[in-house]
Amino acid sequence: MNFAEQYIALVTMSTREIRRFLRIWTQTLLPPVITMVLYFVIFGSLIGSRIGQMEGFNYADFVAPGLIMMAVITNSYSNVVSSFFGHKFQRHIEEILVSPIPNYIILAGFVSGGMARGLLVGIFVTITSIFFTDFQIQHPLIVIVTIVLTSLLFSVAGLLNAIFATTFDDISIVPTFILTPLTYLGGVFYSITMLPDFWQLVSKANPILYMVNAFRYGFLGISDINVGAALVAIMGFTIVLIAIALRLLKTGKNLRA
């Protein structure tokens, strides 16, 4: 395939992926907004007022970047894992596999769908948070770079999960037992400076901590860790996962007999 044909194939795949999650918007776009409203009502108005200040900010303002990031992570991941596994389960992944599309376009096609959903949800929940918080965006470029990289990273992670998955249970195990705990322990609701030294060290092994803190820095100008290091870490994780995904697509793991 020449460049123009590859571009058409990528646009075809992306369009199909985006149409898929827009068609079922009540399952994909609406729930994160409702969840966000509940978080702000509970942590902002009910509990947040009793917690007081966190790192010099209202509790609702402090948790808002982490909550937005959580929605982006969850939606980017679940979009790709459910779409790719659906393709496998219904066997229409074969439509793509028999075509001359190179593996990096297959990867880019699915990941673009995950990123589109993650970022769209990110925009919606950010708009929602404006009604409950009064934060200002301190470093817009950091916000954009962090959210785009995070969305990319978790879209690729979703693809890896879907490649390995052979049953529907397999696509819920990772989000339930790995992703959610890592997100909740990734500094969304608290600053790791509140933890004893040992647990601070353990927390630094959690990749989501870097994303949440880089994102919070973009919004509030505060972070528990060095933002430059955080961005490098996110990029490093992303490159490693992309390399693994391309390798698995090349070997045909769980795709070609």
Binding site: M1, N2, A4, E5, Q6, I8, A9, V11, T12, M13, T15, R16, E95, I96, S99, P100, I101
Partner: peptide, 11 residues
């Protein structure tokens, strides 16, 4: 139509 796109055919 989508299958055509996978083969790089313009829409």
């Amino acid at each position: 139509v989508t299958q055509g796109g996978y083969y790089g055919m313009p829409l």
